[in-house]
């Protein structure tokens, strides 16, 4: 996957992961892909809902050693 930008939100608590993700997404253009790393346990539900509401698509997510990783394509 061609990732255009990476947001490292590891260790950050709510609402920082989505605030950082939003900021990074604003700098991308439609079709580009953002990768987000987070450790906040609410991040999965938060980012899934956030992406859907903003018209972005969550392409993939996985968990690796306690780190939640997301790939979101800008809508």
């Amino acid at each position: 996957m061609n990732v255009d930008k990476l947001v490292d939100a590891k260790g950050l608590a709510c609402p920082m992961p989505i605030v950082r993700t939003k900021k990074a997404m604003d700098g991308l253009s439609s079709g580009q892909i953002l990768e987000v790393h987070a450790t906040d346990k609410g991040a999965k539900n938060d980012l899934t809902a956030w992406a859907a509401s903003g018209g972005h698509s969550l392409l993939k997510h996985e968990e690796e050693a306690g780190v939640l990783k997301f790939w979101i394509q800008k809508g």
Binding site: C14, P15, I18, V19, T21, K22, W50, G54
Partner: peptide
């Protein structure tokens, strides 16, 4: 303020 900042991230 957490809800407000979250809502701002929701555009």
């Amino acid at each position: 303020y957490i809800i407000a900042n979250g809502a701002a991230a929701y555009d």
